[in-house]
Simulated assay, not measured.
Amino acid sequence: MESNFGIYIHIPFCKQKCFYCDFPSFAGRERLIDSYLAELSREMELTALKYGQDGKMAPYTVYIGGGTPSLLDTAQLARLFSAANEHIRFDQVAEFTIEANPGTLTKDKLRLMKASGVNRISIGVQSFDDNCLKKIGRIHRAGDAIECIKLAQSLGFYNISLDLMYGLPGQNMDTLKQSIEQAIALQVQHISVYGLQLEDGTVFARQQAMGKLQLPTDELVENMYDYIAATLPAGGYNRYEISNYALSGYESKHNSLYWQDVPYLGFGAGAHAYWQVNRYENPTNIDAYMAMVRRGEILSNIEEKVDEKAHMEEFCFLGLRMTKGIDKEKFRETFNKDIYAVFGDGIKEMLDKGFLQEKDGALSLTTIGMKYGNIVFGAFITGE
């Protein structure tokens, strides 16, 4: 097994479900955590025995996400790290990330993370405005987030990422600016900023259907986008992907695998894998997931068989998310075809409109193209 792949481990437990969230996560199911951790370890063991070397997997990156991994108590976190170490060779892991919520992160948990080899923490802040946080269902307040980040820095974490959001209910330009300025002032290494998307099945989607969700106007959301895209680079954070900014050298290695057509394994309820040119997904339901593992099934539920057409399209969609764009030579090496022979008409149209640019052997989004990325992505759908 090559080490050029990533591992994602999903912890589907939350103290409270955020109003915008459609991820596979569940509040009030803490009684299942210990059983879940046992099956999670078993799933990793079965996969390592089948695809690993000497019974262990040797990935390039490991990412523990959720849900809220920091909801686990210290004993449960210790079990999680022990299981990971039992089935993963960490000597080749370049980046080991864990997500955390300021409302559930403690000094003891941070110390355990540090001692267990975690070298990157991704903290879900979303906003530094208490009114916004309350309106989106977050359990923490701005002061908690600031205290949490400073505590992590004091304990020797030098690769910290913050998640922020814009276009939120109750958010205006002043509160957005306050959040961006606070993130920069905290001198974290990485900042992700996502526009609110109304997803089916969420509290916000139900509120919208009832006419009870008051959102910023489209014009204000566009102004927020422009402010973010100008301010973070001015503060030293290079934009390397549509929603991600980092100090030089601190780009997310794990997430970059997703955008560069690199395989990854996923463990846990609702986790996805991209392995041997197929996409797999585990059951989202926690009980169904645990039953699957007890049956000894791994990489069994094929979400999508990735044929060449789908592979080429996805290669381009994901590549365009990154500012460096689609490497034309890598496309040729992967598919034994020239990218213009497949997508030439769409590429020419996007170049003419100024949404796409060609330089340094790559096709990449322009500044305006970044803003309207979905239009450009549509040019890389080939039809039948």
Score class of each variant (00 low, 15 high):
Phe23Val: 10
Met1Gln: 05
Gln189Met: 10
Glu2Arg: 00
Asn285Glu: 14
Gln178Asp: 13
Arg141Asp: 15
Gln126Pro: 00
Pro263Ala: 06
Lys177Ser: 15
Asp91His: 13
Gly170Met: 12
Ala341Asn: 13
Asp327Ile: 02
Leu257Asp: 08
Met173His: 12
Glu181Ser: 10
Phe19Ala: 12
Tyr225Met: 11
Arg42Thr: 14
Glu2His: 07
Phe23Arg: 00
Glu297Tyr: 01
Lys353Ser: 13
Asn278Met: 13
Phe335Lys: 02
Leu151Ser: 03
Ser256Val: 06
Val306Gln: 07
Asn119Glu: 05
Gln214Val: 11
Gln197Thr: 13
Glu95Met: 05
Phe331Ser: 07
Ile228Pro: 02
Gln357Lys: 14
His272Lys: 08
Tyr245Cys: 12
Ala75Val: 12
Leu46His: 01
Ala234Asp: 12
Met292Arg: 07
Met44Cys: 06
Leu162Gly: 03
Pro24Glu: 09
Leu168Thr: 04
Glu43Tyr: 00
Ser248Trp: 00
Gln187His: 13
Met224His: 02
Ser3Thr: 11
Leu49Asn: 15
Phe343Thr: 02
Pro69Ala: 15
Phe377Lys: 03
Tyr8Met: 05
Lys309Arg: 15
Lys353Ala: 15
Gln76Leu: 13
Leu151Gly: 00
Leu356Ala: 01
Glu99Thr: 02
Asp218Gly: 07
Tyr227Glu: 06
Glu30Gln: 11
Met210Pro: 00
Glu349Ser: 12
Glu181Ile: 05
Leu168Phe: 07
Val342Glu: 09
Lys337Arg: 13
Leu162Asn: 04
Phe331Gln: 03
Tyr280Val: 05
Gly361Asp: 09
Glu86Asn: 09
Pro169Asp: 13
Gln214Ile: 14
Gly383Phe: 07
Gln214Lys: 08
Asp261Thr: 10
Val376Asn: 07
Ile9Met: 10
Val62Glu: 11
Asp91Cys: 15
Trp275Ala: 07
Asn301Phe: 15
Thr106Val: 05
Pro233Lys: 02
Arg42Pro: 06
Asn159Phe: 11
Gly325Asp: 07
Val342His: 03
Gln357Ser: 14
Ala48Trp: 03
Ser116Leu: 08
Asp144Val: 11
Asp108Trp: 02
Ser256Tyr: 05
Cys316Met: 06
Arg332Pro: 04
Ile98Met: 15
Glu303Ser: 13
Ser82Thr: 11
Ala152Tyr: 03
Gly354Asn: 01
Asp226Ser: 00
Ala246Trp: 03
Lys330Phe: 10
Phe5Pro: 00
Met322Asp: 00
Thr366Val: 10
Leu198Asp: 00
